[in-house]
């Protein structure tokens, strides 16, 4: 039912001409235009509540598939008006170059404001100390830079692409998640969240993390990217890369950022990335999925969870919960 031939380039989107006349559906008990139509409708509802309830929202943009999906949903929520808030990228300095290139192109096409704050600055100022050793990563260092940026711009709502199916501490998150002055998540005392009555009332100094795609699974996100023809960075597709093995995982050997022992052998492998985090904590998976259709098929059959290739979660059973208590998103 859904016109799958719509233009993919956002800047070339047609203005308000009538392309087709039909019924807009989001029900789960009828044939829907999209597999995830009900989730799309829910996310759009959440975006509009954020803009109505907060003074100064911001969208946390990493260049990964989840935040790219958020951008598309935000566009849909406010069209024909522009996205009414800026994007904020907390740059670890360890990004895949493809992601940054993609980010800049997207921002230009959308005409939205992009704010970049660097983890390197916090390191230079001595606010955080770079981790050392084999498993050093800047992933958890992002928190300080994020909290500083929220304070600097007085953002009261930070919209993120975290999903409940990613990780078991995230499975406990609310859609509007209240954080104190220190960005801390009080996991034992969360506000009840009932029906669609989202309570965004906060005190000065508090802020709210908002998760519009809380109820999406990894497969939902990929299906949406496929059905909506959303462009994503090339590292999500199979490509040849110089890699090495450690702890049964495949690491990129092309970037100096990833620490490698001299006896860890470099080999070319056909790989892709399932998540795009800090390079130093994101492993690749073997794949021959060159197209979005093949990626969707691969995810559907996968026996390993999405964050199975994220070393930051493997540090301890409560790694995510601890990071969240300290203000991580």
């Amino acid at each position: 039912m859904w016109d799958t031939h719509q233009l993919t380039k956002m800047k070339n989107r047609p203005t308000m001409e009538v392309l087709e006349k039909k019924v807009l559906e989001a029900q789960t008990d009828t044939r829907t235009r999209l597999n995830v139509a009900h989730l799309e409708s829910e996310a759009i509802y959440i975006f509009r509540e954020v803009v109505a309830q907060f003074e100064k929202p911001v969208l946390l943009f990493s260049g990964g598939k989840d935040s790219i999906t958020l951008v598309r949903l935000a566009q849909k929520a406010f069209y024909p008006a522009k996205i009414p808030f800026p994007l904020l990228h907390i740059d670890t300095g360890h990004n895949f170059p493809e992601t940054i290139e993609f980010r800049d192109k997207l921002v230009e096409e959308l005409g939205v404001e992009l704010i970049v704050r660097n983890v390197q600055d916090a390191i230079d100022q001595g606010k955080v100390v770079e981790e050392k050793g084999k498993y050093a990563s800047r992933n958890s260092l992002q928190t300080t830079t994020l909290l500083d940026a929220l304070e600097e711009f007085k953002f009261d709502a930070a919209i993120g692409g975290a999903r409940r199916d990613e990780e078991k501490a995230r499975a406990k998150e609310r859609i509007f998640s209240v954080r104190d002055d220190f960005g801390q998540w009080d996991e034992k005392n969360q506000r009840p969240e009932l029906f669609d009555h989202l309570n965004g009332k906060i005190e000065l100094g508090q802020n709210v993390r908002v998760f519009p795609i809380s109820n999406w699974t990894e497969l939902d996100v990929w299906s949406y990217i496929e059905e909506e023809h959303i462009e994503i960075p090339s590292i999500y597709f199979a490509h040849t890369r110089k890699t090495f093995l450690r702890d049964g995982m495949i690491w990129s050997a092309e970037d100096a950022v990833v620490y490698r022992e001299s006896d860890e052998v470099v080999e070319e492998r056909m790989v892709r990335f399932r998540t795009v985090g800090d390079m130093s904590c994101t492993a690749a998976v073997l794949s021959d999925a060159f197209s979005i259709q093949k990626v969707v098929a691969e995810i559907r059959d996968s026996k390993i969870s999405e964050r199975g290739a994220r070393i930051d979660d493997k540090r301890s059973e409560a790694a995510m919960e601890k990071r969240k208590q300290q203000g991580y998103f």
């Binding site: 308000m16 009538v18 392309l19 006349k21 039909k22 019924v23 807009l24 559906e25 989001a26 029900q27 789960t28 009828t30 139509a37 009900h38 799309e40 409708s41 829910e42 759009i44 509802y45 509009r48 929520a77």
Partner: peptide, 10 residues
């Protein structure tokens, strides 16, 4: 644009 919108849609 659509002729009709059904319940559940935004």
């Amino acid at each position: 644009q659509f002729d009709t919108a059904s319940r559940g849609s935004s």
